[in-house]
Design a protein around this nucleic acid. Structure first.
Lengths: 124, 124
DNA sequence: CCAACCTTACCAAAAGATTGTCAAGGTTGG
DNA sequence: CCAACCTTGACAATCTTTTGGTAAGGTTGG
């Protein structure tokens, strides 16, 4: 039996047994298992669980956010989509010429009508 | 008046005025302002708001998660802390020698006692 | 074999995120 | 100046996430 059971690991790490299972389901800190399926927390896992407490406490975020950060590094497609959206047009809207703005103003009413049409299409 | 007001931008983007303010508070899509403080949505913001709809719908996550991804790129300290935690010991716990495991087993009882002491210190 | 563990799977309370609505007040175009 | 916008802020309904508990059943050490 090379590791601590969930009820032994709980008081050491500061998490409840319930939360240790939850943390595992989110994908952070996955302990080894015995042949029968019992969780076994080794030194690495215990250390990780302790630092996890500090990490969440010091910067103000939760398990969901950290789980999302994990997804971002595990799923390249997701990472790419998010990065692409975040990278888009962060610059000042100053490079638009007066002509463009004029055209924009003229198309404003048109755009509103288009939106109404879109709404109707969604309803139908 | 180079841009759409919040009630004009709403039907075009598919978000409600309330949500446009919420999206701004999360840090995604911040429109320009008039001297009096009125929000002005330009072509970039409108495009961003439309793609935001798709992004959230296609991959299953919400504004909070995307807001956290934004924080990760805006706050280097946060990024470093999260990366450091996620990078830690992802390898199999197979490199531990039997001697180490023996020592670990012997220290197990000791660790539990230490945990109890810690608990008492927190209470006091 | 039995007491004391462990497992998964639910139900539900507490907390947080999302969304609407309303109130009090400032801005603007005619 | 007035109607029709806009602003921020607060309260609240709703939905999801977080957390605890409990039930039904398998595992283990003595």
């Amino acid at each position: 039996m090379n590791g601590l059971t969930i009820h032994e690991a709980a008081p050491i790490t500061g998490w409840s047994p319930r939360m240790l299972r939850y943390i595992e389901r989110v994908g952070l800190v996955e302990p080894a298992r015995t042949a029968a399926g019992y969780r076994l927390y080794g030194p690495e896992q215990l250390q990780r669980l302790r630092t996890l407490r500090e990490l969440l406490a010091q910067h103000g975020f939760g398990l969901a956010e950290l789980g999302f950060a994990l997804r971002l590094r595990d799923e390249p497609e997701l990472r790419a989509a998010v990065d692409q959206w975040l990278d888009a047009v962060p610059e000042r809207p100053a490079e638009v010429s007066p002509d463009d703005w004029l055209r924009w103003e003229q198309e404003k009413h048109q755009a509103l009508l288009a939106a109404v049409n879109l709404r109707e299409m969604e309803i139908a």
